[in-house]
Design a protein around this nucleic acid. Sequence first.
DNA 1: GATGAATGAGGGTTCATTCAT
DNA 2: GATGAATGAACCCTCATTCAT
Lengths: 205, 205, 205, 205
Amino acid sequence: MAEKITKRHADPALAEARRGQILIAAADCFRRKGYHGAGMAEISKTAEMSAGHIYNYFASKEAIIEAIIERDMEEMFSIFQQFEDHPDDLVSVMTEGADEGVEHSMDKEQGALQLEMLAEAARNPKVAFLLQQSDTHARDKMRRLLTGERSLIKDVTDKELDGRINVLFAMFGGLLLRTTLYPELQKDTILLALKPALRTLLMPF
Amino acid sequence: MAEKITKRHADPALAEARRGQILIAAADCFRRKGYHGAGMAEISKTAEMSAGHIYNYFASKEAIIEAIIERDMEEMFSIFQQFEDHPDDLVSVMTEGADEGVEHSMDKEQGALQLEMLAEAARNPKVAFLLQQSDTHARDKMRRLLTGERSLIKDVTDKELDGRINVLFAMFGGLLLRTTLYPELQKDTILLALKPALRTLLMPF
Amino acid sequence: MAEKITKRHADPALAEARRGQILIAAADCFRRKGYHGAGMAEISKTAEMSAGHIYNYFASKEAIIEAIIERDMEEMFSIFQQFEDHPDDLVSVMTEGADEGVEHSMDKEQGALQLEMLAEAARNPKVAFLLQQSDTHARDKMRRLLTGERSLIKDVTDKELDGRINVLFAMFGGLLLRTTLYPELQKDTILLALKPALRTLLMPF
Amino acid sequence: MAEKITKRHADPALAEARRGQILIAAADCFRRKGYHGAGMAEISKTAEMSAGHIYNYFASKEAIIEAIIERDMEEMFSIFQQFEDHPDDLVSVMTEGADEGVEHSMDKEQGALQLEMLAEAARNPKVAFLLQQSDTHARDKMRRLLTGERSLIKDVTDKELDGRINVLFAMFGGLLLRTTLYPELQKDTILLALKPALRTLLMPF
DNA sequence: GATGAATGAGGGTTCATTCAT
DNA sequence: GATGAATGAACCCTCATTCAT
């Protein structure tokens, strides 16, 4: 199950467009109703396409959420690339980048979908694998940044580094939950306290 | 839907015991299979009670998860009380208490259920309301702690305080996600970086 | 798939009655529409029971046809028992029994169902296995009869015996097809030629 | 449904070639997967032609199996012709021809398709009609053979003759079933017993 | 003539919920 | 109070068929 569909399409551009249509529609439905709550009927209506036709592009509903995850992974990687390419010192880059990071983490629509995927991971091994793979890549990227020349903590032990990265990720990831639990929370309020904590995590203790 | 059942029970004590049985069983099932993955049949078997009988105590499956949340809220409040009652200075108390907090946040079984509930909140207003209420109470408790005599930051602005609390909560809450995304992560690794960050959040910047 | 359902039923007698209801209804539908042509909806309507309820007694549609086969096997064994218990010489017994055998083989309703099951066996290994098992038992029974004291051919080689039995079975089994291909065919017409052929197969060549 | 398509084709020869392509491909698929098991997609791939195009030659999937039957009928007639043209006495010819007949009847691939068609006949009147028509022709041919000069039973009553023919056909037809029910069965084993039975049916009792 | 994208009814199955006992 | 037999709507998915190109 959940394998990428192998069917040959005469017009690959059209096929890719249809896949995109479906992914966007499905992500929207999952956001609003959850993975289990959203039916193929609703997804197909949102995608303006018959339910049956979706199966010409995805082998199953499960394959759809997996594709959404994979697409999100690619997005995330491009964000990290920005940090890597930036010339300034890391603490400045990241505290300033925090602004954008917080905004992203506090996007309600996005957050609901992410939570949905995380919850699904708890019982769907394939989803769990994909998310973990994505997270491993992200940690690797971050580790490379923090051990680079521009980093103030390039000499800490591996274990401490792992701890710093995970707390960092927990902090940003946790914003997903804050948005759900405290919808009135403002970005600048968060930044007031997050930047100092971030600095602590990027400098020697 | 999901209203508290209004049925009169001849023996209120027995009724309460039955409700407890059901909640424990359901929480267990939800933990293992997720809200959607656990069926009433399994819950009823775990609760050693017929499926039909559960409906004498809860109007629907949804009402059950709501009751679980309500029960969890009560538990959480008692934890906070510990901090309030403790005589030492707050930074010490909390950095030492972090140990227990991390352990709690990284409990995988518990985490799956929490994620489930948070995901459900994104689309179920009643669940969202309950969780938000719970979170508001928690923030209030924390605010009271941080503005108490023993606090080093009792004079910061309300806004900054709100920021600190939310980042604090995000950090711990985010550990839920870390466990799902990086199952091999160890508690002591986290603590290595979390304690300094925690200190930063509890002291003037 | 297709395993016997393991659910415990509070009232085994009722459960057995329901299973019977379902088997009778399903056999009827399969006869009229074929295994693939008959839907669970139609079966459930014929059985005067909701579609969902059928799944409390059978794990799948496939399990139903398997149960029908098993039930038929038991019926068939009881017929063979008659021959075994009969005191007269075998040729007489069987040529006289042919009457009943032909009638049974030419029952149109029954025949359609048998054909359906045989066709299904060509692509469903479990069905094939059950039918082959049934046939093996039948051949064993027949072999025992033909090597018994009362048999005129008790001393032929195993291979010849196997040949005789299989031609015998082919002849009767083939009547199933005759009924479909030539519905006007009468039983007594068949018997006119079948009895001599039968005698040939039961006596030394 | 299932009427012969009325569409005019610009190039009748090409059209006939395409029809042939489709019939061969479909027969192959039906053999391997059964009528219901084989999809139009698979048939179209086997026929190296788009699914939609098939509908330019056949009105429906049903029309295809009907055309296959019609084609098979024509094949069968040519086999009978062999007997009619042969100079030797009938008993010799047919007992020797039995060899080939048994081989043909025991071809597993072919058998599956035949069974499929017979099962379909039980519920599809058009299929039933075609098969019956085919069978009637075959019986006529056989009757002509058995009442010819070379026959030893040219003087039996019509009814007895009908009985003999039908038992004969049942015996060969029944081999189809034997192959499904007892796949290890060998041709020579069958012939050991079939030839004497055959002789009985071709000679005065 | 030929394609394959697109449809949508219907397939088997699950499961929260009801109710007679 | 307690059971579990029974319901039926909704689930995901398949496939014969159509039609714009």
